[in-house]
């Protein structure tokens, strides 16, 4: 069902005609809602041209664009180590990984564009500080071991969050997530491998690995979002089949996975309260500093200003290049049109 049908201009503007038009619009709206509800109840998919509630569109647009921004800002902490990667193989892997993130940003901006907003607008909002991205990227990547910890913990948490999104009710989002998740699982494995190598290396390397895990553990757990009783949007997102599991549920699942993997790494999690609750059959963790989470979210994290400034700088420095490309494309199009006309 095409959304534009709902906004068609009435033929006759007589009071009767107008009234008829309003009734018709209301009827189309009702039909659209019924279709949407059926799709939700069948756990099927909404596609870009289908009717959808305005709030559903808004929620998705916010979520997908934030996700895209996170990929783009998330390139920065890792790009910070490309030039200093300690072996050529690691340098190649890291370059490929950061490049993948640019690719994820591209798919996600495209998915968001199907909801009716341009990539330029989304980028402008990001640079203006109006749009959010994952707070995790406002922490600094201080040592090489952070490349391991980011891959293992941050990408690991992202995968827990994102695998259920492959089934999100909005088609373009779900499909983008399938491809992204495949690459993310590779990213997580390379992070694990970096830590494993460090942990089995010299004492200094092992210490570097443990220090990185210590710093990234809590921020990674907070990536799942606030506790369920403090997450106002979750319920609606779950009803819309965008979100499938609650924040706490995903967090607990993630902790369980990390407990197993950290043993293989020969490292420890900086959390003495991690335990499996036999009654609830769920993993539990120690308290998280939600004040810190809110501070970083409010822009008062270690790297908020730096990350935004870097994006702004790249965008501004590149303006003349984008203008040149657009001008050249327009000239080529005119030339081709003239050729066609002559022929």
């Amino acid at each position: 069902m095409a959304a534009q049908n709902l906004q068609s201009v009435p033929d006759a503007l007589s009071p009767e005609g107008l009234k008829g038009e309003q009734e018709r619009a209301a009827q189309l709206e009702a039909e659209g809602q019924a279709y949407f509800d059926r799709v939700m109840s069948e756990d099927s998919r909404i596609e870009p041209k289908d009717w959808m509630p305005a709030a559903y569109r808004k929620t998705l647009l916010r979520q997908i664009s934030q996700h895209a921004h996170s990929e783009i800002i998330g390139m920065q902490p890792e790009a910070n180590w490309i030039s200093r990667a300690p072996s050529l193989k690691r340098k190649a892997i890291l370059m490929a990984k950061v490049q993948d993130e640019a690719g994820h940003g591209l798919y996600l901006y495209s998915a968001a564009e199907t909801l009716g907003q341009s990539r330029d607008k989304m980028m402008d909002d990001l640079i203006a500080g109006k749009a959010r991205y994952s707070s995790i990227f406002n922490y600094p990547a201080l040592t090489w071991a952070d490349m391991g910890a980011i891959g293992w913990l941050v990408d690991g948490a992202a995968i827990c969050n994102q695998v259920p999104l492959c089934r999100a009710s909005y088609g373009p989002y779900g499909r983008a997530m399938v491809r992204i998740c495949k690459e993310e699982s590779f990213h997580q494995r390379q992070g694990f491998e970096i830590l494993l190598e460090l942990s089995n290396g010299t004492p200094a390397q092992k210490q570097m690995a443990q220090d990185a895990v210590n710093r990234w553990y809590a921020p990674a757990l907070m990536m799942f979002g606030p506790p369920d009783d403090d997450s106002p949007n979750s319920k609606q997102s779950m009803a819309w089949n965008i979100k499938r599991f609650s924040n706490d549920e995903l967090r607990s699942r993630f902790v369980g996975m990390m407990v197993e993997q950290v043993r293989v790494l020969g490292l420890t999690l900086p959390d003495s309260e991690v335990r499996f609750n036999e009654e609830t059959k769920k993993w539990e963790h120690g308290p998280l500093d939600w004040e810190e989470f809110k501070e970083v979210l409010a822009g008062r994290g270690p790297c908020n200003a730096q990350r935004l400034e870097r994006r702004r700088e790249a965008h501004d420095d590149g303006a003349w290049v984008r203008e040149a490309a657009a001008a050249y494309a327009a000239k080529q199009a005119r030339k081709n049109a003239q050729k066609e006309f002559a022929a």
Binding site: A79, I82, M95, V98, Q99, A102, L106, R310, V321
Partner: peptide, 21 residues
């Protein structure tokens, strides 16, 4: 490699990254 995350548009982050690789 320095261009990755600093290119004029995302497509060029990918392209220059690819060439660097």
């Amino acid at each position: 490699g320095h261009w990755i995350s600093r290119a004029p548009e995302l497509e060029e982050d990918v392209a220059l990254g690819n060439i660097a690789l």
